[in-house]
Design a binder for these strands. Structure first.
Length: 172
DNA sequence: TCATTGATTTCA
DNA sequence: GAAATCAATGAT
């Protein structure tokens, strides 16, 4: 096992988002145990990025994004779906990588549902938590980049930033 | 394509 | 306190 160290998560969100696809999220206790390969991510650059929740200012919900990289940011949208993000960058820099997809699951809402994640994982530290962490399996998949989804409200130039990263080959 | 859904945020 | 918002999904 090779848990990703904190240093990795202290990079900027775009760099982390590029490297995460192909790695495994390992769920131990507290959720549905298993390995979940990340297949799709999106980068959110906090204060610079109008598409990021934190760009509007620090609130109770977004304050997790201001922690240093390696923490989970779990939040609820549309009354149905939990979204899973990994905070990146140093303390005080609200960046995060949204996990849009993992192997065997389709959309972002399904990720957390399938893994059994709930709000108790908000603020979880991936570098020290005994129940969830990320492993690098050494798999370097081909990646496709594209604009992010569901952020039209952010306006240009954010809507067209190629900050979405997806494994080229269809995994199932 | 459209209705549903509920935590969070914002306004009075 | 009450209303509007929203990084989506599933049914139609």
């Amino acid at each position: 096992m090779s848990r990703i160290i904190r240093e990795f998560f202290l990079s900027d969100a775009v760099s982390v988002a590029r490297l995460l696809p192909g790695m495994d999220i390992v769920m131990a206790d507290g959720g549905i145990p298993g390995h979940y390969m990340i297949t799709e991510t999106e980068a959110y650059l906090g204060d610079n990025d109008k598409a990021c929740h934190a760009s509007k200012g620090r609130t109770k919900r977004t304050e997790v994004m201001y922690l240093e990289g390696g923490h989970l940011y779990i939040y609820f949208v549309y009354g149905m779906h939990w979204m899973m993000n990994i905070v990146t960058g140093p303390m005080g820099s609200p960046q995060a990588v949204l996990i849009r997809g993992v192997a065997s699951y389709c959309g972002p809402g399904r990720v957390t549902k399938g893994m059994g994640i709930d709000r108790s994982f908000n603020g979880e530290d991936l570098t020290t938590s005994p129940r969830v962490w990320v492993e690098d399996k050494g798999y370097k998949p081909g990646l496709t980049t594209g604009p992010r989804i569901g952020i039209n409200y952010a306006g240009e130039p954010w809507v067209s930033k190629p900050w979405r990263f997806k494994i080229t080959e269809k995994q199932l």
